[in-house]
Design a protein around this nucleic acid. Structure first.
Length: 760
DNA sequence: CTGCTATGATTTTTT
DNA sequence: ATCATAGCAG
């Protein structure tokens, strides 16, 4: 069969167009569920099949490792079906892994040693604190995290300390420049790169060494960038450089799914692609193959409220499907119970397997109650995200030993493990080593050795440090002479790390041992996959760049719990989005922001969440929710109101009728008075024993509720203190209290019944 | 130096 | 409410 026929088989016209268009700049606007990955992989197969470029002459950049792996796998499959054998390694990478690949070959040009280590953000924070101490900057007045964010922002804009100093003076103060500059010196001394450096140094490399850039420009005849709406400025710059020679740049994205602006993603990159490349061809993939028509139409109606968009409308030929279930619950416990019960009921009726269900939430803290309720009903679940595996203490400890063994300049790793498990080298000693090393312009490893030789410390301390150095010397030589899998066990054994945990009989220690076993499995798996290539350095690289979704194992039969952010790119037949309330989703930060774009990003997040569902979608909200130990009463999210009622089936379990008073208190009255009673009369008549109350219309949330309705963000006036903003509410009925923050930033708590508050 | 208690901060998260 | 970190007493 003809190559073109093969790669465009079963494709719709725009998909075909995208696959066939190989030369020149191409912008593919791919709506949710429009077969984007299929198009990308087939387009790449087409390039190879047509002989337009060799397999390693194409660069394909994705957002996550998981996407990269999946794409690579699919391309091999398609090429295999076409009878094409590929020997070269494909360049399907994330931006970061692409940059690591480049830097491993050329970083010596930038005056780093080849075996650099990669710092994650907590390593980075430690490094910044170290620098601040050296500069005598007070952490209280200038929190290290602020510097971390500013340095990261600067790097994402491609700014060096000097560049930062020259640019936008009013935003960037001199202190940041100072810390940034010293941080760079320390990082180079430690022969380490942070995540932003991977991009920034690659960009520097390309700018400083035009011949290196030229080599890659010529090598990559075709470049494809996935999730282009979430690229940041430095990524944009790198892409622009690489694409300059051939201009065969294909970017794929969906401006409606841009949800990482807080991380530097610049939606303008995709919105302005046609300005950057006036000759660009634009292909829109607007047909959704994933979800039922009701889901597609509801999500479309929501996203239409955004102004920052291209003209693109998702449609589907899928059947209408079920209505979207909007569910009101009393509080987060009831909400979680509802989710768990619904899953249990549906499973009993034989609807799918646990794998087919997912629960999304805006913040990680919301997962707790859900886990509790799922556990109660013995529903298997897995939680994606939260505390990452490789960020756990024991994992980081062991990896630090391994890192230090190949990069003795890594002071942060050394500081982390010099006294782990406790070997009597305390803070004072570590500080002295650090100071001593800085004076002599040495790494801490060299400094410690020097201190031992010069007998700076007393005999006891000197002995302890010497024993640590001997241990590290031994590990250093083991690192090169043993296989990775064996080396891991040597580390566990020789550091006595495992022995220390085994001595500790607490359940926490037990969990740590299990995690270390899991790491053992991961290493074995890695060794199996990579074979001969399974070097320590490549393993550490993988550990630094891997994330939790990457290991999301679809085989395991369990319900998936994750934040809306992580859900991007995934799909499930049955999806619950919980906590769809104002000030939670959209987040309080977005609703209080003067910048309307902040709410637009939240809306995109809603769009992403809704379009993950194939068949059924639930949106739930509660009337009361405990946040940071405080009760909050938030109205349902504006995103729910943006869905036309014809797509919705609304049910409430919170409108408890007055005469059914199960708890012997006045909670029934509470909700009536607080939330208005638009539907309560009908509900009373309808109540047949279940706790569902069908309603045609939404309750009137905007009702004043007789002055009893206070929610976060509301402006109120107090006769003595003046105008302020409601910060939190607690209690109920006569005991309802509100905390109000006044213009001078003082917070005062009032009992509503007594304080003569008035709404502004 | 170690272990305990007080303090503070807390969307989202690749890489 | 909860977790991590900082500071202090033992």
């Amino acid at each position: 069969m003809d190559i073109l026929d093969f790669v465009t088989k079963n494709m719709n016209p725009p998909q075909k167009d995208a696959i066939e268009t190989l030369n020149g700049p191409l912008l593919i606007l791919a709506g949710a569920g429009s077969g984007k990955t299929r198009v990308l992989t087939h387009r790449m197969a087409n390039i190879i099949g047509q002989g337009a470029a060799a397999p390693d002459g194409i660069l394909c950049v994705t957002f996550t490792n998981k996407a990269a792996k999946e794409m690579e796998h699919r391309i091999y499959k398609i090429l295999g079906d076409m009878g094409i054998m590929v020997r070269e390694q494909l360049w399907v990478n994330t931006f970061h892994s692409f940059c690591v690949r480049v830097l491993r070959s050329h970083i010596t040009l930038l005056d780093y040693k080849q075996f650099f280590t990669i710092y994650d953000s907590s390593d980075q924070l430690s490094q910044i604190k170290k620098v601040m101490t050296a500069l005598g900057i007070n952490d209280k007045m200038y929190p290290a995290k602020n510097f971390q964010a500013r340095i990261s922002n600067a790097k994402m804009l491609g700014l060096t300390p000097e560049g930062l100093e020259r640019s936008s003076k009013r935003l960037m103060d001199q202190k940041t420049v100072e810390v940034y500059r010293a941080y760079e010196v320390e990082m180079k001394r430690a022969n380490s790169l942070d995540f932003d450096d991977l991009l920034m140094k690659t960009y520097d490399l390309f700018r400083m060494y035009p011949d290196v850039l030229k080599m890659y420009q010529e090598k990559f005849q075709y470049i494809m960038v996935d999730e282009y709406q979430d690229t940041n400025h430095i990524q944009y710059l790198i892409v622009q450089l690489l694409a300059k020679a051939h201009r065969n740049l294909c970017v794929v994205g969906d401006e409606d799914q841009s949800i990482y602006s807080w991380r530097g993603a610049d939606i303008k990159n995709i919105l302005d692609f046609e300005k950057d490349f006036p000759e660009a061809k634009v292909v829109k993939l607007e047909e959704n193959y994933r979800s039922s028509a009701n889901i597609v139409n509801a999500a479309t109606a929501v996203i239409k409220n955004n102004s920052q968009r291209k003209d693109k409308t998702l449609f589907t030929s899928n059947p209408e499907g079920d209505l979207i279930n909007v569910r009101e619950e009393r509080n987060e416990y009831d909400e979680a119970k509802f989710v768990a019960k619904t899953i249990q009921t549906m499973m009993n009726e034989g609807e799918g397997s646990y794998n087919d269900y997912a629960v999304f939430y805006r913040t990680n803290a919301q997962s707790r109650v859900l886990e509790e309720q799922l556990r109660t009903l013995a529903i298997p679940y897995r939680l994606v995200g939260g505390v990452r595996f490789y960020e756990r203490m024991e994992i980081k400890d062991i990896l630090s030993f391994m890192k230090l063994a190949i990069n003795p300049a890594d002071d942060i790793a050394l500081k982390r493990i010099i006294n782990v498990p406790a070997r009597g080298i305390g803070k004072t000693t570590i500080d002295k080593i650090e100071e001593f090393s800085a004076q002599k312009n040495m790494t801490m490893y060299e400094g410690a050795r020097n201190a031992v030789e010069q007998k700076i410390f007393n005999a006891g301390t000197t002995g302890k440090i010497r024993r640590f150095l001997d241990l590290m010397d031994e590990l250093q030589s083991s690192a090169t002479s043993f296989k990775l899998t064996d080396f891991y066990h040597i580390v566990l054994d020789r550091t006595e790390y495992l022995a220390a945990l085994k001595k500790d009989e607490s359940p926490e220690a037990q969990a740590r041992i299990e995690n270390l076993e899991e790491l053992d499995n991961a290493i074995a798996q890695f060794a199996k996959e990579r074979g001969e290539e399974a070097s320590l350095i490549s393993f550490l690289e993988e550990m630094a760049l891997v994330s939790d979704v990457d290991s999301l194992d679809q085989e395991q039969n369990s319900v998936t719990l994750m934040t809306l952010h992580i859900s991007k790119g995934l799909e499930y037949p049955y999806v619950f989005v919980v906590g769809v309330e104002e000030n939670l989703f959209p987040s309080g930060r977005a609703t209080e922001s003067e910048n309307p774009e902040d709410v637009e990003e939240e809306r995109r997040l809603a769009y992403v969440g809704m379009t993950r569902a194939r068949q059924k979608l639930w949106l739930t909200y509660t009337k009361m929710r405990r946040v940071w130990g405080q009760e909050q009463f938030n109205p349902p999210s504006r995103f729910i109101k943006e869905i036309p009622p014809s797509f919705i089936s609304f049910k409430s379990a919170a409108e408890a009728p007055r005469f059914v008073n199960r708890y012997g208190d006045s909670s029934g009255d509470l909700y009536e008075s607080k939330w208005g009673s638009t539907n309560s009369d009908r509900n009373k008549a309808r109540n047949t024993g279940g706790d569902d109350f069908d309603t045609q219309d939404f309750p009137d949330y905007d009702g004043d509720g007789g002055g009893m309705n206070y929610s976060k963000g509301m402006r109120v006036r107090h006769p003595t203190f003046g105008v302020g903003t409601v910060y939190a509410t607690e209690g109920a009925g006569d005991n309802l209290k509100v905390s109000v923050m006044f213009t001078d930033n003082t917070v005062k708590k009032f009992v509503v019944k007594y304080a003569r508050l008035e709404r502004v």
